[in-house]
Design a protein around this nucleic acid. Structure first.
Lengths: 223, 223
DNA sequence: TTCAACCTATGACATTTGTCATTGTTTACG
DNA sequence: CGTAAACAATGACAAATGTCATAGGTTGAA
């Protein structure tokens, strides 16, 4: 159709009015991006999101009253497919993990201003974006196995923060519709062991059962 | 980035060399389509698909050695997001149902040559395409309720052949991760009734459990 | 070496899920 | 009117699923 003509509607949320204004100016100058609203804290973010339903929510984490993480959690509960990109001053370890676990589509550092617009485009294309500085942190946070490929691997690990390789394999099998017995056969382990892994996965991702896990998989990884 | 410049890489698979050549010529003439490979049967389709990972696989169903349906099943197992469009000589009833159930993105008739390129574009835009002749068949195959809207309704009906409205509602709730009790509450019916509906759905779609149903939902409806 | 993860495994247990037989109501069609 | 299909429900049952406690083996880092 005419996707190329439609601008990416972006909602900006930051407690610093100066930052908001700067971002709005910088992004507004891009031909394919339109700033559709601005907010100053998490509550406003949630309210504005429900009202405007933007394509992208670009949000700070540390904000008074209601943090970006809290807001994101609420928003994602309502709008599962929300594309939320965090924009912070420092790449704080716990925040990264928390944000990615929530299902954020990006985690950028304010210093890397020039990267923001391209990052938004990438997220709109279904990708996930981590700022360079963040990527390093992620790398050290989970001493990524051996000397394997860094790129996609780090992303994968990041998105399912805290999950082990085994657990991730099992997630993929569940997302293909296999039951515990089939998974056990495929992975050469006991069915009880599979159950244990599944149980751990569900706790880590705060899900209730394997069906929710499959849903989560397709909504977060794909989608 | 620059999606508008990148051509849609299309893999053509048909046992008739003449058909292959014709299609390649016709499609190659389109500014936004590029034929990236050709194959003569299902096995070649699978092999080439894995090698080239095209945007679109345009494939005949009836082929020697390995039918298009078999190939599609294998390919979709590996590449969940594969966009497979079947192109056949006749709109054969069973094939239509089978193809759509597999998760095909399109089912076209060779006679409607002029429609192929537009169909490819539609599929790339996330839509699903059924040739006009096919649509009629689908309509009669399942005497589509009453005189409701034909378009999207027919598609939905086709994709979930034989499913009732109620059943479809329940599918959507399952695809949101609700358990039977929650569905019962939401739909104002007994939990046992929900179980019965789920059981019927699974039989109709030939699935084993609700997790597979969720997987099926996201692989088929979404993409 | 000691410690912390991770992986594996078992047994017990409660819950959820799926199947089946059966029954009844309502609605649409011939 | 009779019939068929969709819808709702119940009870009973088998199977799958998820949780928990516990425990042994491996491996890499301090």
């Amino acid at each position: 159709m005419d996707e190329s003509k439609v601008k990416t509607r972006t909602l900006i949320v930051d407690d610093d009015p100066f930052v908001r204004a700067s971002l709005a100016t910088i992004l507004g100058a891009e031909a394919d991006i339109e700033v559709c609203g601005e907010g100053g804290n998490g509550r406003e973010a949630a309210a504005l999101y429900g009202e405007l339903v933007p394509d992208i929510l670009l949000m700070d984490i540390q904000m008074p009253e209601c943090s970006g993480l809290e807001a994101a959690e609420g928003i994602l509960r309502q709008h599962v497919r929300a594309r939320i990109v965090f924009l912070t001053t420092f790449s704080d370890d716990e925040y990264i993990v928390a944000a990615l676990r929530l299902g954020a589509r990006g985690y950028l550092i304010k210093q890397e201003v020039a990267n923001i617009a391209p990052a938004i485009r990438a997220v709109m294309a279904g990708q996930m974006v981590l700022g360079g500085e963040v990527l390093e942190k992620v790398d050290t946070l989970m001493q990524a196995g051996s000397g394997g490929a860094a790129g996609r691997e780090a992303l994968r690990a990041a998105q399912f923060a805290g999950l082990t390789d085994r657990e991730f394999e099992i997630i993929e099998l569940i997302a293909q519709g296999l039951d515990n017995k089939e998974i056990a056969a495929q992975e050469f382990m006991g069915e009880g062991t599979v159950r244990n892994h599944v149980s751990t996965i569900l706790q880590k991702l705060q899900l209730k059962n394997r069906t929710q896990l499959a849903v989560y998989y397709y909504r977060t990884l794909k989608g």
